[in-house]
Amino acid sequence: MKSLPRLLMFIAALSLLGLFAFPMWSITLYAPQYPDGVTMYIWINKLSGSTEGTLQNINILNHYVGMKMIEPESIPELKYFPYVIYAMVALGLLVAIINKKNLFLVWTILLVVLCTVGIYDFYLWEYDYGHNLSADAPISIPGMAYQPPLIGRKILLNFTADSWPYIGGAFVAVSMLAGFLAWWLRRRMAPQA
């Protein structure tokens, strides 16, 4: 019982590795011609789709309205975000070894801040793809932007777009909860100790 907070801190640190096993976010487009939807998965280090051709198919659809090609090579975050996560895992393990209550909290707050920055960065990318349209677009509708929702559902012309956190995102949530719980339990235990 006494070692539970520390165990939770280990869990918090290691959960982040789930980001390398599962996508953290998914965006699904539905249209009459795509009854099963076209799903793009956003990982910490790459983009993938429900089929191998998904990214190409999304790009084909997007080019009609002048959106830029989504090219994983041109998104630097996919290269350095993994290092941020590795650092957080290492830091988390260190914190667990040091086993100091306040460090649990500091680490958790740092994680929340990083996540907020990450989501804001995601929003900026979405904004850029949705608004920065080519003047040569075959289909041009004045006033129309194609920014997918940050979270939830939005109708964009003939498409319904769904954007939701995915399994990898759940691992981050687990990580935050475990880190917070580790701090909170240790604090409750502290007077008796």
Binding site: T51, E52, G53, Q56, N57, I60
Partner: peptide, 8 residues
């Protein structure tokens, strides 16, 4: 020689 690049 026409290659169809589509993957859908």
């Amino acid at each position: 020689h026409v290659t169809n690049l589509e993957q859908d």
